[in-house]
Simulated scan of single mutants.
Amino acid sequence: MTTIAARRAALFALFDRLGIVTTTHEHEAVFTVAEGRHVKETIPGGHTKNLFLKDKKGRLFLVVALGDAVIDLKRLHEVVGASGRLSFGSGDLLEEVWGVKPGAVTPFGALCDTGQRVTVVLDAAMMEQPVLNYHPLENTATTSIARDDLVAFLAATGHEPLILPCSQPG
């Protein structure tokens, strides 16, 4: 198993190969959206939350939305096409498939999912933001990326994202 530092280096190398320009801000570890509020104040762009979910048949989903989005988990399976209601995937499964620990969930984990086991779902409201922010595989930094570059990165890893209306009007 490679280290986080090695995976992070591979992530930025892929950005370079794809011609994707990002900006990364180092900061103390943050584990929740609420903990990161003070960090967000200094970083422009849409700040996000990432839900690692599984359905009754074991299909895996990463649902990515703005941090303050309201998502109805009881009905989300209908939106994303899952088999029955969704539940949170375990931390062990998250690390095995997506290569990150709980508290550092990010769409950039697609780099580690070489078997394309996870379906990435980007909330349509989030995709209205021109710049989005995610952890670069660890929660001690935030990387800003253009929305179209996020889609290009995901496609390059074999994770063509679904862009769907996952959040409810707040």
Rank of each mutant, 00 (worst) to 15 (best):
S87D: 10
A5H: 14
G103V: 06
R17C: 01
H159S: 10
L76Q: 02
T42K: 14
M126W: 06
T23D: 12
W98P: 01
L122V: 04
L76C: 03
A29I: 13
V151N: 04
P130A: 00
K57V: 14
G36S: 14
H27T: 13
F153D: 03
H135N: 00
H77A: 13
V30E: 03
G158M: 05
V118Q: 06
P44K: 08
D113F: 09
L18P: 11
T32P: 06
P136N: 02
T119H: 10
P107R: 00
T42E: 13
E28A: 12
L122N: 03
M127Q: 03
K74H: 08
A152K: 15
Q168E: 15
D148N: 10
R59K: 13
K40N: 15
A29F: 13
L66G: 15
R75Y: 08
P102G: 11
A146M: 08
F31K: 11
N139Q: 01
V120A: 10
L51I: 09
D72P: 07
L62Y: 06
F15Q: 04
M127C: 11
G99Q: 03
T32Y: 05
L53T: 11
V63K: 06
K49E: 05
A104H: 02
R37G: 02
K74N: 09
V121C: 07
S83M: 01
L51N: 10
L73F: 15
G46W: 04
E138A: 08
V121L: 04
K74W: 00
V33A: 06
K101Y: 03
E160L: 05
L137C: 01
R117A: 14
N133A: 00
T142D: 00
V80M: 05
E128A: 08
G81Y: 04
T114Y: 05
G58F: 07
H135P: 04
L14G: 14
T119R: 12
G46P: 01
R117N: 08
A155V: 15
L76G: 00
M126L: 15
T140R: 13
G84F: 07
D55W: 11
L154M: 05
D149W: 12
L51Q: 09
G158E: 03
F108Q: 09
E160A: 11
D113I: 04
V21Y: 02
E78V: 13
K74E: 08
L93C: 03
F61M: 12
A34N: 11
P161H: 07
S167K: 01
L86M: 09
T140I: 05
F61V: 13
S167F: 02
T24L: 09
L53R: 10
I71H: 14
